[in-house]
Structure formats: structure tokens, C-alpha cells
Amino acid sequence: MSGSRWTWRLVALPGVAWLSVFFLVAFYTVLAVAFGNQDTLSQPVPHWNPLDWNVGYVSEMLDNFWHGGPFWTVSLRTIQFVALAVLLSLLIGYPVAYFTAMHAGRWKGAILLALILPLWINYLMRMLAWINLLAPDGVGSDVLHSVGIEDLFLSIGLLDEPGGWLNGQPVTVILALLYGYIPFFILPLFVAIDRIDRRQIDAARDLGASPASAFFRVTLPLSWAGILAGAVLIALPMFGDYYTADLVSASTQTNMIGNQIDEFMRQGSEKVTGAALTLLLSTFLLALMFYYLRTTRRAGTAAEV
């Protein structure tokens, strides 16, 4: 037994070492830059020794958040965009995952393939395609107009003018995020639903539950881990995304926190501020991640009981 345990540990070693080096070293570098300084040439000077850390940049950033400065505005907007995109992913993705797992029969493989197919095309290319589709004379724009979605969005104020999808509209950015990431939500959710023991649903029905009641009291709770996994899988990259907003909008009214980090790190001379902002975003995401791990562990324990 113990021999086999060691074999598996050895097999896992390269992967663990890879992640440790490329996650921990990179993360520590961000820490050392964020708690470092910059030289007279505006280049970052990392402080590798925690005893030498300079909290100035990070505390300035926190101060900005605390007093409702621009970083607060942009963070709040990012949270709203991501929350809405995740919610829409759930509303659209759950029925797809449920149907595929429960009712697709021999079409299951084909549907899964169709879900994965768009991922063969580069994310940027897919977003660039949307620019042409959503242009005032684009096919996508025409379709949205003819099925009445454009009128609906105009009437509730989500769209400024007919055909104006690319005029810096928050709704376009949210829909683009939804489109870009939804396959990553559906796939883990499909796995979770597919693994549900159908006899549990049958038992609920036998004991008098209506189909709806069986769904809400059995299927949904049993697929909760899949929902969470999908949500985490898409929310994490969405929080750092900057090119989606850049491509389909480019308005300051739709800039996300990733755009600010990009501005500091790639375009500007304030890389230390950029590192401090990266650190704060990571801390926030880490908190989300812990919540996810705790919830799934609880769900696992409950299932064992």
C-alpha cells in the first residue's frame, strides 16, 4: 500500500513543482514589486526581503478604495459586470448542461463537441468577429433587431440608439463576456449533473415529489458543486479580462479593473501601482476561491454522511 502511495506522490511531483515555481515565484515577485519602490528612472525596484517592505503604494491604493476613488468605481463596475455575466451563464448554461446530461441520449457527444468547437478559434478572433457582427449594418445587429431584442433593450435603456451595440454600451461588454466564457461554465456543470445518481431522483418521485419539487430538492442541490465550479472557472478570468471591454466598447464607462492594471503595467510608468492593484485583485479572488473550496468540502462531507 505504502509503496503505491509513494509512486503516486512521485507522479504528482513534476506538476506540483511546476505550479509552485510558476505560481509562487511569480506571485512573490508581484508582492516584492507592490511592496517595493521605484528608481529615478520610474522603473520598479522590488524589495525581496519582507522586512524591507514599503507599504506606501499598497496603502495609497487602499486609501483610494476607501474614499471612493477611481479604483473603487472601476472595481464596483467590474464586480457588477462579472456578477451579471455569471448569472446569465447560469440561466442559459444550466438548461443546456441539464439537457445534455439527462436527455441528449446518443446526441450527448455531438452536443459536447459543439460546445467545445468555438474554443478551437482564438478568443481574440471570436471577439473581433463580433465587432463586424454587431456593427450597425452587421448580421448580428440585424438579427437582434428582427427578433425584437433591440427594441426591448432600447425601451429599458440598455441601448442608446438603434444599431448602437458598439457605442460603448455596458450591456455589450457583459454579453461579450458571457459569450466568451460560457462553455467553461457548462462543461463542469454537465459533469456534475451527469454524475447524479438517477435513482435518487426516482426515489424522490416515488415518495410523491412533483417533477419541479424533485428538481429543486434533489437535482439542483446535487449539482451545486458543478454550478460553483463553473462560476469560479469563469469568474476568475473575467475579473482580470481587459481585452473584451477594449474590443467591443473602448469607452471609459465600461473599463474594468483589468484595463486599469494594463494601463499601469504596459502603457504607463507606474508599474508599482499596477502591482499593488494586481495584489488587491488577487486577494479578492483568493477570498472567493476559499469560499468555493470551503463550500465544496462541506458538500463533500455532507455527501459522505
Binding site: 476613488g69 477611481p70 472601476v74 471609459t252 494601463e263 510608468s269 507606474e270
Partner: peptide, 10 residues
């Protein structure tokens, strides 16, 4: 840089 960041935050 600070002014620009403020403008870009919208």
C-alpha cells in the same frame, strides 16, 4: 499618469 487613470476609470 494619475489624471489619466482617473479619466480611464470613467
Amino acid at each position: 499618469d494619475d489624471a489619466w487613470s482617473k479619466f480611464k476609470a470613467g
